[in-house]
Structure formats: C-alpha cells, structure tokens
C-alpha cells in the first residue's frame, strides 16, 4: 500500500465509501427495525443473550473499526511486530472484560 500511497488519493476515498456504505446500511436496518419491517427472528431471537440484529451491528462495527485502524491510522502498513504490540492488549483485555462484566450483569439481573 505504501506504493499506492504515492500514486494519489484513491485509496482514501475507497475507504470513505466503504465506511459510508456500512453506516448507511446500519441506519437503514435501524429504521426498518423501528418501523417493524425486519423479519422477527432478527429482532427477537437471541444468541448469547443478544438479538441476531445486534450481532450483525457488532460485526459491521468491527469491519468499520478495522478499516479505520488499519488504513486511516496506517497500522496495517507498520512493522508486523508493532502492529501486534498495539492490537494484542486490546484483543485480550477487551473480550475478557466483556465476559466477566456481562456475565456478572446477567447474574445481577437474575438476582433482582
């Protein structure tokens, strides 16, 4: 990519359109949900305590985050060792935090 970097700005705009398209898609799903046009299993059936629609939103969010971090923040083009030094703490600590806090929250809900 560092070669492409010198050959213009098209890669910046490409990422912009991807981010915009994903956001527009998310907003569309959100509005369809409010208006009740989404299939029921997406809104009411759950997996790991979250609706399938929520899982879709999370995946789309992670894709957006990936583009921002790897391309806009240029982390995808840094040294591999540097890349992992930055990403590994988040990859380990955030899921761990989510796991302990959210399972605790479910317990708190059941105990109320």
């Amino acid at each position: 990519m560092s070669d492409e970097q010198h050959s213009g700005n098209w890669w910046i705009w490409k990422v912009f359109w991807i981010l915009l398209a994903i956001t527009a898609f998310e907003v569309m799903l959100g509005i369809l949900k409010v208006d009740g046009y989404l299939p029921e299993f997406l809104v009411f059936d759950t997996f790991l305590g979250l609706a399938w629609l929520t899982h879709i939103f999370i995946v789309l969010t992670l894709i957006k985050a990936g583009y921002i971090v790897l391309v806009f923040m240029h982390l995808g083009f840094e040294e591999k060792s540097f890349r992992w030094t930055i990403l590994v703490p988040a990859f380990i600590l955030v899921p761990y935090l989510l796991f302990i806090i959210l399972s605790e929250a479910t317990h708190a809900y059941l105990m109320m």
Binding site: G49, F82, I86, P89, A90, L93, V94, L97, L98, I101, L102, E104, A105, T106, A108, Y109, M112
Partner: peptide, 28 residues
C-alpha cells in the same frame, strides 16, 4: 509510538465505559 501507546490506554478506558454501560443495560 508514544501516541499509539497512549491510544491503547484510551481504548481500554472507553472499553471500560461501554462495558459499564453494558452491565447496567443487561441488569435493567
């Protein structure tokens, strides 16, 4: 590099906030 290290800590701060939000939302 130091900017990146700062951003790691900030990532964890915001993760904690949003997880806290998740806790209350799940509980209530």
């Amino acid at each position: 590099m130091m900017m990146w290290f700062f951003l790691i800590t900030d990532t964890l701060t915001f993760s904690a906030f949003l997880t806290g939000y998740g806790f209350s939302r799940f509980k209530f």
